[in-house]
């Protein structure tokens, strides 16, 4: 009798294991295939891609698409712009966040509560699109490139994360000892807090970098000058713009431009790779950190 139930249990567990692995394999395939397809399509022969020969492996290795990307005039300019915006954003965000996080972690900081309330209000209420737009306009920041990172560089959530990290990782005795020796807040922050908080600082830096790299909305609304446009705006014009899409359909219609249309197609795949490459380079670091980052965030706020 006991043996019988045991067998049944083993069989049930086996079915469970198979189901679990099947679910995971299916989800893996669904998520991975589009990514894989972009990669193989970008290095395949343009003709093979547009005739549907490329499905599992690259066909007729060719870097035609990448050549097109490199030769496209506004790509380099926008790439450089995005790098500049991202560096500025990361610099400003980390400095502002760490300073505020440190200040709020001090116990004898008179008025701490007021600052916390001041910040928390902004988490629940926001002006919305138009009032923000009008504010930016009245501040004279229209068409000035710093606006693309100024708007989003203060994240109350990040400040809370940094504060919690400092509070739980830098012992109070260390603080007291330093101040008895006549250390100032600035020195303490630079020589003790920052080196000890590097894990949390790097998480925040990485996330703001990815956020800025991927952003296009502020640039679309606040910038007019073509030379200031970030990469994502150029991507949008090439990948999602409806008129561009229509033009491609028309071009495929005419025989003369067939080769051109095929080139344009593989250029799009190459473009996706080129635009996403920096993120994929930092992804291993992100992945190592973000589970930690998420749980840090959920401690408070």
């Amino acid at each position: 009798m006991a043996n019988h139930t045991k067998i049944r249990r083993i069989r049930s567990d086996l079915i469970f294991d198979i189901t679990v692995n099947a679910i995971l394999a299916l989800l893996l395939l669904i998520v991975a295939y589009p990514l894989w397809f972009v990669i193989i399509a970008s290095v395949s022969d343009p003709t093979a891609v547009s005739f549907g020969k490329v499905i599992v492996w690259p066909v007729g290795f060719s870097l035609e698409g990448y050549k097109e990307v490199v030769n496209y005039p506004s790509i380099w300019r926008s790439y450089l712009n995005t790098i500049i915006y991202t560096l500025c954003d990361v610099g400003l965000t980390t400095v502002v966040t760490v300073m505020a996080g440190y200040a709020l972690s001090r116990r004898d900081f008179v008025g701490k509560k007021l600052f916390v309330i001041y910040m928390t209000i902004t988490m629940f209420f926001s002006g919305g699109l138009i009032p923000t737009y009008l504010t930016v306009r009245s501040l004279g920041l229209m068409d000035k490139w710093p606006i693309v990172f100024l708007l989003g560089c203060v994240s109350v959530r990040n400040i809370v994360i940094v504060r919690t990290f400092i509070q739980s990782n830098i012992p109070e005795s260390l603080v007291e000892a330093a101040f008895l020796d006549g250390c100032s807040h600035t020195k303490f922050l630079l020589w003790v807090v920052v080196p000890l908080s590097l894990p949390v600082i790097s998480v925040i830096a990485l996330f703001s970098a990815v956020g800025q790299w991927n952003s296009w909305f502020n640039a679309m609304i606040y910038l007019r000058d073509e030379n200031m446009m970030p990469l994502q705006i150029v991507l949008r014009n090439l990948l999602v713009n409806q008129t561009a899409m229509m033009r491609d359909v028309l071009e495929t219609g005419g025989n003369n431009d067939l080769a051109q249309a095929q080139k344009a197609l593989s250029m799009k795949y190459a473009l996706i790779i080129v635009a996403t490459l920096p993120i994929m380079c930092v992804y291993p670091f992100l992945q190592r950190f973000f589970v930690k980052g998420m749980t840090m965030g959920s401690i408070k706020g």
């Binding site: 397809f37 991927n214 993120i279 992100l286």
Partner: peptide, 14 residues
Amino acid sequence: FISMVVIVGMLNLF
């Protein structure tokens, strides 16, 4: 971590 523009672009391509 892939940008919204790229995701919509991929949809359009696929």
